[in-house]
């Protein structure tokens, strides 16, 4: 009984995704790769892909640096106001998105690549903070103190001990930050300006009209592939950590 129920739930969970993937390989019942060819020949899609990946890489880079440094400081020096880093996770995304839009309007900050990037970093810092801090809190501060007694100063200790120990957490946080940025729709759509489009925005602009087109499915399949690769590495890291 239970097994059948669970089986059905998982089938329902995967069926839509599998159907999108299948439909992207077929044209009127025949196997074809032409939808993928379309994707790779579409200037707009290629440009959006380039934008998405630049955005994800840069926001990951900055949020990992800022988030890790903060996590380290909070853990080792017993600072107050840690909840500063948790609110961005609790606040609904749409509220955060519209507040950023108002902020930019208020300052007359031009909307486009930078306005989107700055918003993505803010959100990701919080996630990096939580993940890296959880990882580092598994170690007592004695591990850094012993390095000091062995002759390494604070800076050497940070790079030779703290960073390597936090590495699994940093990698996991990077993967999550990258994925969140790569897939992000709401914050991007609120803070973008004319001329800056990412893949989720492109998919939205067509799908919002209820259009289900094979080339859109092909694009979705490709994006799924990238998300799944990231998920695979994330799962591998978290299992290894246990």
């Amino acid at each position: 009984m239970m097994q059948i129920f669970v089986l059905i739930v998982f089938t329902i969970l995967y069926a839509p995704i599998v159907l999108v993937i299948i439909s992207s390989f077929f044209d009127a019942g025949n196997f074809t790769l032409k939808w993928f060819e379309d994707v790779f020949q579409d200037e707009k899609i290629l440009k959006a892909f380039y934008n998405s990946i630049t955005l994800a890489i840069l926001s990951t880079l900055f949020s990992v640096i800022l988030g890790t440094a903060s996590a380290y400081a909070f853990l080792r020096s017993k600072m107050k106001f840690e909840s500063l880093f948790y609110t961005p996770i609790i606040i609904p995304e749409i509220t955060e998105a519209l507040s950023l839009l108002l902020f930019y309007k208020f300052l007359s900050f031009p909307l486009g690549f930078f306005s989107v990037l700055l918003g993505h970093i803010a959100f990701n810092i919080a996630f990096v903070f939580v993940i890296v801090k959880a990882r580092l809190s598994g170690y007592e501060k004695s591990i850094e103190e012993v390095s000091l007694t062995l002759g390494a100063n604070e800076v050497q200790t940070f790079f030779r001990v703290t960073i390597p120990i936090a590495m699994p957490g940093i990698v996991a946080a990077s993967l999550i930050a990258f994925t969140l940025s790569w897939d992000n729709f709401i914050k991007t759509v609120f803070t973008t300006g004319p001329g800056f489009q990412t893949l989720p925005l492109l998919i939205w602009s067509q799908a919002a009209r209820g259009v289900v087109s094979p080339s859109l499915s092909a694009l979705t399949t490709l994006m799924l592939l990238i998300s799944m690769i990231l998920a695979y590495f994330y799962v591998r890291i978290s299992i290894k950590r246990e």
């Binding site: 897939d183 729709f185 989720p200 859109l216 799924l224 998300s227």
Partner: peptide, 10 residues
């Protein structure tokens, strides 16, 4: 691990 947008599209 894939966005809500993609899942909803699916």
């Amino acid at each position: 691990w894939m966005s809500l947008l993609l899942r909803t599209y699916a």
